[in-house]
Design a protein around this nucleic acid. Structure first.
Lengths: 106, 106
DNA sequence: CTACTATATGCCGTAATGGGCATGTACACC
DNA sequence: GGTGTACATGCCCATTACGGCATATAGTAG
């Protein structure tokens, strides 16, 4: 779990995940999207893989990476108690707006 | 935003946030919950503060930290497209279970 | 002003991170 | 077999991160 957070901590890795939202992609395609060298990209993919955030399948000489949603779901679960907090704040804000002069709203 | 992810990357800092779920707490109370020295705890709190994840108010000589839900909400928003992915997988799994021998279910 | 309490900051050592370049490895094709 | 392509790994360097200890700072009490 901690590995997941650590993996998500890097902007390049989050970008890689975002690209994979479009579907499975080979390393070469991902490299083209970053400003990173192929080796650096591969290392980031390794981190994502070891965190369970992506999976790989071989396809001839290429390695096709795909999103693995499970760990992100764990992050989502972690957020749960905090989510309650801000929906509360939101409700409070709504109520505040309801009670105050409408002209102050924007 | 990147600062938020970075801040959340550290387990001690996530623990601090979890403690703050119970309500605002002074530094001393938080130190008692970690295995960290007071200075280290203060440094972690600084990171959380600079990421906007907590706010402080002075109260005599003490500084009372409180959760600031907004940045966590941004994380939640970031999760959104991935969330779709795993609810999909979940639906697919459900359908699979529906179609397979009930005895395999556990 | 002094002394005490609560917290922040500075400094230092060590470990981890991220980047590039060179090189290793696996597969396909001839 | 050899060659080319696609990717991973190793090595090196620079930067950052985190921990502790010592110390500075702000506020309170006397």
């Amino acid at each position: 779990m901690s590995a997941v957070w650590a993996a998500l901590g890097d902007p390049h890795r989050r970008a890689l995940l975002a690209f994979l939202l479009e579907g499975p992609r080979a390393v070469g395609e991902l490299v083209g999207r970053t400003r990173l060298s192929q080796p650096s990209t591969s290392k980031h993919l390794r981190v994502l893989r070891e965190a369970g955030l992506v999976s790989v399948r071989r396809e001839a000489q290429r390695r096709v990476y795909a999103l693995e949603p499970r760990p992100i779901a764990e992050i989502d679960a972690w957020l749960e108690p905090y989510r309650r907090l801000w929906t509360q704040s939101f409700d409070a804000l709504e109520q505040h707006l309801d009670e105050s002069d409408p002209k102050e709203d924007q």
